[in-house]
């Protein structure tokens, strides 16, 4: 039994590493469909990655070793975080009490390196993007911790795998409000951290309005490939937190994984729909959205406290 579970964790981890870019494709296809276009192929990001891996690189004269090391280490951090996430009813590849802190801080490391890479170029645009990125993530981080704390309280477990093992149909029956609120927070955090509308628009064409995209303007070649791929893995890992709540996988290993993957795809389409039907918020409004997202989980915690 024990070996099958770890086998499933291993497979889940490989699914995350392999299918992560597909989520981006799904989001883009959904957006295209909403706009009445055919849109790019589902596997576009794979093609992009393959193309970037074959390219040389052009570096800004201002940049140094940190600029070159950042994308590789950032991708490593995203993959470590992906190894921590439970999926489809199976625990994560690595699990221990407090792994949720490591999960959040791995993304912190990734962000710190991206921001420093942006500042390394000395470009005003990239500095502006970096400034916005740190502002919004400083607010998104407490929101995510509030959501996880609500789950910790409900399931009385300190590890992500333990928490998600404790979420089942019974929990949905007895405290639907708590789960819905937590999912609400996690969706807000997902959108903000993965530079999606309404916080950031990955397709915008003006440097002044970008947040994440502007920070990586000067990256090219394999470095940029690492960044794109790392972003996709991050999207997968954070979506897995949501899908684990929606599909409490107690249907046996294979069914669990399958339903999990399906849920991820549906989630990607939901993100695409959100991006299609909403406009970008004014920058001053974004903190309100994030604080509002945190407030949802705060209310969830109040339920558990009362």
């Amino acid at each position: 039994m024990n070996t099958t579970i770890s086998m499933q964790s291993l497979i889940n981890f490989f699914l995350a590493v392999v299918f992560a870019p597909l989520l981006i494709g799904l989001i883009n296809r959904t957006k295209a469909w909403f706009a009445g276009r055919r849109g790019q192929p589902l596997f576009q990001l794979y093609y992009d990655l393959a193309k970037l891996a074959r390219k040389g690189a052009v570096y800004s004269r201002t940049t140094g070793w940190l600029f070159r090391a950042g994308p590789a280490v950032g991708l490593a951090a995203a993959i470590v975080a992906a190894a921590l996430v439970p999926f489809g009813g199976a625990p994560g590849l690595i699990r221990f009490d407090g792994d949720l802190v490591l999960f959040a801080y791995c993304f912190g490391l990734m962000r710190f390196l991206t921001v420093l890479g942006a500042l390394d170029t000395g470009s005003s645009f990239e500095g502006m993007g970096a400034s916005r990125e740190v502002t919004f993530s400083a607010l998104a981080e407490p929101a995510m911790f509030l959501a996880l704390a609500a789950l910790v309280r409900r399931t009385e477990s300190l590890s992500l795998s333990g928490i998600y093992a404790g979420i089942d149909v019974e929990v949905w029956r007895t405290s639907p409000a708590l789960l819905l609120l937590v999912i609400g927070t996690l969706v807000v955090v997902l959108l903000a951290e993965n530079s999606r509308i309404p916080v950031d628009d990955p397709n915008t064409h003006l440097e002044l309005t970008m947040i994440h995209e502007v920070m990586v303007l000067d990256h090219g070649g394999p470095d940029f490939g690492f960044i794109l791929y790392g972003g996709a893995v991050k999207l997968w890992a954070m979506s897995a937190l949501i899908s684990g709540l929606i599909v409490p996988g107690h249907f046996g290993p294979w069914c669990g994984t399958l339903s999990g993957v399906l849920c991820m795809f549906v989630l990607a389409m939901v993100v695409g729909i959100i991006e299609s039907v909403m406009a970008r918020l004014r920058l001053l409004r974004v903190p309100q959205l994030l604080v509002g997202g945190a407030a949802l989980s705060a209310v969830a915690l109040m339920i558990t406290l009362s």
Binding site: P176, A177, L181, G292, L296, V299, M302
Partner: peptide
């Protein structure tokens, strides 16, 4: 539609009133 859920939405509407 449980009581808890309705009441939670009530809390959210109150917060919305404060912030609108």
């Amino acid at each position: 539609m449980s009581v808890e859920l309705i009441l939670t939405v009530v809390v959210l509407t109150n917060l919305r009133l404060l912030g609108a």
